[in-house]
Design a protein around this nucleic acid. Structure first.
Lengths: 154, 154
DNA sequence: ATGGGTGCAAATCCTTTGCACTCGG
DNA sequence: CCGAGTGCAAAGGATTTGCACCCAT
């Protein structure tokens, strides 16, 4: 497991302890599956990875644990419009945006302070008090541009 | 019906005719419900409004017609994370972004060319070929800020 | 020991689909 | 007339929930 992953897992243990919540095998297995992968996994994929690493976890528990992770700030939840949610390790990373490839589904990330500030400012201009936002760019990732030079992004 | 709404409805009639698709009561009723409201309605609300105006439309037909509207570019589909899709009249308006009130659900819109350009540029910087994007800002709308001066947006 | 956690299956919610019937062109 | 459109109800897929049993603390 990566250093980052390990750090997040420890943070999760601490979060559980400090909230008097039992540290169970299942919770750790789900958290590990999320933290291990830099990817944006579905609940189903997370369950599969936990099982592959030796701890089968019931669907309900997967969802309940993902909730815990999101609420504790250790994971982030996304909806890229596939009809299901995706999760990525959360804390420590600066806020960032996602580019989703319409052809292969790959996710590329970027972040930019000026963009964040501009978004907040524009919201305030219409008398809205911004708290957070989500920005998703759809198009073609690098490799899909190459394999389909003429393809138009959907 | 507003001038805009009427224009869109005519455009829809033309779209149907030119594609050799029957212009049915149901299709017009659904389209009218979407075009009449500047709001961002759910499929259920759209069905209710069509029924209220005298033409009850089956759920399946509502969805099928909304698909038609979206594909023809006359309506836009949104997912604000409520677990269902929302629809708004589409064509004619410039691309715009949405601020969704975490307290009351109200939607405020804004648009800004520089923002659009910056988003495209930032995506290109990570070698992504952008096609379209969606940006949603969550926070408190004007009236919820006033009624809850101390509230923190969720 | 003991209260919360867990798994299973049933339940929900939105949306889609199969099919016999109806209607617009 | 006739093929596409419609409504109903059943199917689907992701997520949630009820409940008896199990395990961290």
């Amino acid at each position: 497991m990566t250093v980052d992953g390990q750090a997040l897992l420890d943070a999760f243990r601490r979060h559980l302890s400090s909230h008097n919540l039992p540290v169970t095998q299942q919770r750790l297995a789900v958290a590990e599956a999320v933290f291990l992968s830099g990817a944006h996994l579905s609940a189903e994929e997370i369950a599969a990875r936990a099982a592959a690493r030796g701890t089968a976890v019931g669907t309900a528990t997967v969802y309940r644990t993902l909730d815990l992770l999101v609420k504790s700030g250790l994971a982030r939840e996304h909806d890229f419009g596939d009809g299901f949610k995706r999760y990525e390790p959360g804390s420590g990373k600066q806020p960032h945006e996602h580019c989703i490839c319409s052809s292969c589904g790959a996710v590329t990330e970027f972040s930019n302070d000026r963009l964040e500030r501009m978004i907040a400012l524009l919201a305030e201009e219409v008398e809205f008090r911004p708290h957070h936002h989500r920005l998703e760019v759809y198009g073609l990732c690098r490799s899909c541009q190459q394999s389909n030079p003429l393809a138009r992004a959907r």
